[in-house]
């Protein structure tokens, strides 16, 4: 790491100058970083190798440099590596003192957007793959069986997960989401928070085992939760190799990071059990 703070600053500007420009048609709202003083766009793409590559642009040199830093650092990683990044590396870069609070905030938001768009991209790809698999499995009969889009056939796949539809093929076809075996208690009838959580945890942690239980009824009416809300409290048990080497706080943070959208949409609390396969006494798969 460059020792001198001013030097680091200059290095940022250097990165900015080397960043490949992002075509103007990608300067769209969904790629735009929120909460940034300047305009910044980031766009992930999935390579043939399944790795994520980023492109970014900005109208200010400094933020361009920060974006370039993230592009350099994050490109060529797998989706789950990207999703598991904790923001504390920002401290390690030693930039925080040189940047104003709003710049620091913008940088954090850049990372968050990159993670969010990566997840969306990954979900889209997974959905496409599942559709291909289930249609080639040729079950025939009624088109309504699958979790597919209402119009059946080769419908348009939405950019982010279609929360209202449940995915029944999760446990039976096994192969589509890797080794995840999902046991869901309380039945799944298309609840958005539950579905969103399941998809994101599967994508981000490739769990060996995953259990999600809605315990909202046990907390109904308690302070800070508006009455009548459902899907507010969940008990989640995850067994994943991704937790290897992480202390408990890190593990919980990794989970929370994947579920930011859910927390913004009404998820209120989680009881978490986060184990590695060895700790859970489950064989690694």
């Amino acid at each position: 790491m460059v020792p001198d703070a001013t030097q680091r600053y200059k290095q940022l500007l250097y990165y900015a100058s080397k960043l490949k420009p992002l075509a103007p048609e990608y300067h769209v709202q969904e790629n735009k970083v929120v909460g940034c003083v300047s305009q910044v766009w980031v766009k992930p793409s999935l390579g043939e190798d399944g790795l994520v590559y980023f492109a970014a642009d900005s109208d200010s040199q400094l933020t361009k440099g920060l974006a370039a830093l993230l592009v350099e650092g994050l490109s060529g990683a797998t989706p789950s590596q990207i999703l598991r990044i904790q923001p504390d590396f920002i401290q390690l870069l030693g930039l925080s003192q040189k940047l104003t609070p709003s710049r620091n905030n913008g940088f954090l938001n850049m990372l968050l957007l990159m993670q969010k768009r990566t997840l969306a991209l990954f979900m889209e790809q997974e959905k496409r793959r599942k559709l291909e698999e289930s249609s080639s499995a040729s079950l025939g009969g009624s088109p309504g069986v699958q979790s597919a889009e209402p119009s059946g056939g080769d419908a348009e796949v939405a950019g982010t997960s279609n929360g209202s539809k449940e995915d029944p093929s999760g446990s039976s076809s096994g192969g589509s989401t890797g080794a995840a075996q999902v046991h869901s208690v309380n039945g799944n009838n298309g609840r958005p928070i539950y579905t969103g959580m399941k998809e994101k945890l599967e994508a981000g942690l490739s769990p060996v085992a995953l259990e999600i239980e809605d315990e909202s009824h046990q907390h109904a009416g308690h302070a800070g939760v508006h009455k009548g809300a459902s899907e507010t409290h969940f008990n989640v048990k995850i067994v994943s190799n991704a937790f290897d080497g992480m202390n408990v706080v890190k593990r919980h943070r990794a989970v929370y990071q994947l579920l930011q959208e859910e927390f913004a949409n009404g998820l209120h609390a989680l009881s978490l059990s986060t184990k590695t396969p060895e700790e859970a006494g489950v064989s690694k798969s």
């Binding site: 929120v34 909460g35 609070p101 905030n105 930011q260 913004a264």
Partner: peptide, 14 residues
């Protein structure tokens, strides 16, 4: 109240 860190600005002022 939503504490949405994925959304807009920061509440944590210096």
């Amino acid at each position: 109240s939503a504490g949405a860190s994925s959304g807009g600005g920061s509440v944590l002022t210096p």
